[in-house]
Design a protein around this nucleic acid. Structure first.
Length: 265
DNA sequence: CTAAAATCCTGGTGGC
DNA sequence: TGCCACCAGGATTTTA
């Protein structure tokens, strides 16, 4: 569930407690989540200091003093806790990173979809991602250019991280509503005007998500309250806040898709 | 190229 | 009350 805005908020919150700290050990309780061989992770990570934490798409990116990159992806139910070693254990903690100040970074992840990568070359993890929609140099013309020669449906394209990075189910639906576009439209039917509206809708939806400190959903409370501002996501059968028609739900690309068939064409 | 389906997972929910 | 089928979904992989 955490999408670009939620990950951005989490990254901002982790910088204070973690930048400058040095890893002293790693405990892996669910090896399937670690995409680097565990012995290699345990041999390479300790001793490296966290120089900076950034975000790329929905990945948290720890820049390490040894030149390596630690990437964490929270997927559906992941959460990160920085706690003193004396803090009681939690059965849903899958990986524990020991720090040099008697604290631990605990990767809690009920559904076990989250992933951990330690790599020398960051492109091994993030090399095939599409553009960052909130980047200063990502312009309407860049967005429109993505649609050239594409013929897929709009919603699955927005969820495709190779097409554009960081958008998930919530912000895809909210962006299509704000742009007045039916998520079932195919890319080659969108006019220049449609693409202009969609560009601004995506940027505004993601920015609003960050301003509201993300959405708290999926029983993972993150402090945000953007969930109180959804206009279509999760509102199946309820009246459209703009026209009053019932919000529809269809499945596109295997994902629940919520929209107003009156306002979105 | 597009797209649908399967995969990985558990907790919550709705039906009976 | 208890049991079970089913749903949620990010990203990848498989199949058409």
């Amino acid at each position: 569930m955490p999408e670009l805005p939620e990950v951005e908020i989490i990254v901002r919150g982790l910088r204070g407690p973690l930048v400058g700290r040095t890893f002293t050990g790693v405990t892996v309780r669910w090896p399937n989540s670690v995409k680097t061989p565990v012995p290699e992770l345990q041999a390479t990570l300790p001793g490296q200091t966290i120089e900076q934490i950034t975000r790329r798409a929905k990945y948290l990116w720890f820049h390490l003093s040894g030149g390596d990159s630690l990437f964490l992806h929270l997927k559906m139910s992941g959460d990160l806790l920085v706690l003193p070693v004396t803090e009681p254990d939690d059965p849903h903690v899958r990986t524990i990173f020991d720090l040099d100040n008697d604290h631990q970074l605990r990767f809690k992840d009920t559904r076990k979809f989250g992933r951990v990568y330690l790599v020398r070359n960051p492109n091994a993890v993030i090399g095939r991602l599409g553009p960052e929609p909130l980047a200063d140099d990502f312009l309407p013309a860049d967005f429109a250019a993505l649609f050239a020669r594409r013929r897929g449906r709009l919603k699955p394209l927005l969820l495709n991280q190779k097409f554009i990075a960081g958008i998930g189910n919530i912000y895809a639906d909210e962006s299509c509503f704000a742009a007045g576009l039916d998520p079932r439209r195919t890319a080659d039917t969108l006019s220049a005007d449609d693409l202009g509206r969609l560009y601004h809708a995506i940027r505004q939806a993601l920015t609003a998500g960050i301003v509201h400190k993300g959405a708290s959903l999926d029983s993972v409370y993150r402090g945000g309250e953007f969930q109180n501002h959804f206009r279509v996501y999760g509102r199946t059968g309820q009246p459209c806040l703009r026209c009053g028609a019932e919000i529809q739900r269809v499945v596109l690309g295997g994902r629940s898709t919520h929209f107003c068939s009156t306002c979105q064409r």
